[in-house]
Amino acid sequence: MFQSNTKDSKPYEPTLYTIKGISILDNDGNRILAKYYDKNIFPTSKEQKAFEKNLFNKTHRTNAEIIMLDGLTCVYKSNVDLFFYVMGSSHENELILMSVLNCLYESVSHILRKNVEKKAVLDSLDIVMLAVDEICDGGIILDADATSVVQRVALRTDDIPLGEQTVAQVLQSAKEQLKWSLLK
């Protein structure tokens, strides 16, 4: 981790492949969603899950925001019963990773209407998956602006046929739509 570059003081090859992994775990350390973008680290899901367990054990008690583990820099953030992680290589700019984590968290928060907890994520898992796909494509940061990510994943407001919605839900969705049209 504190790998000194003295031996090959060459700077690392500039590349857009910045993100090594993104994961969302629940409060028992179980995976809700995880993507790994570098075939050279954790090639099998067994290794990935072992890493996640280890990562969770090291991070779930302290809210320290950043940790180095297995040669990766991991930034994280938790809320209620969810843990969000973004991983990059140990020489990656920590602030870039943090910006991606913030985008991930804000996008999810927006999709779930600020109700960031496990049940809500699972209920909208399809949209959350799409959001992760819009944030990072194969390790390249595709977009790190939460508003634009949310726009791109096509928030489904007409989720339920109108007849089945409660009055409150209709009102809520109307409000949302109004807000969006004003914001635009």
């Binding site: 504190f2 000194s4 320290a64 925001e65 950043i66 920590e94 602030l95 990773l97 943090m98």
Partner: peptide, 15 residues
């Protein structure tokens, strides 16, 4: 006040 920034800074200072 941001831990990540402190971490990045002190890690580089270490170098």
């Amino acid at each position: 006040p941001k831990p990540t920034l402190r971490f990045a800074a002190v890690r580089t200072l270490n170098k």
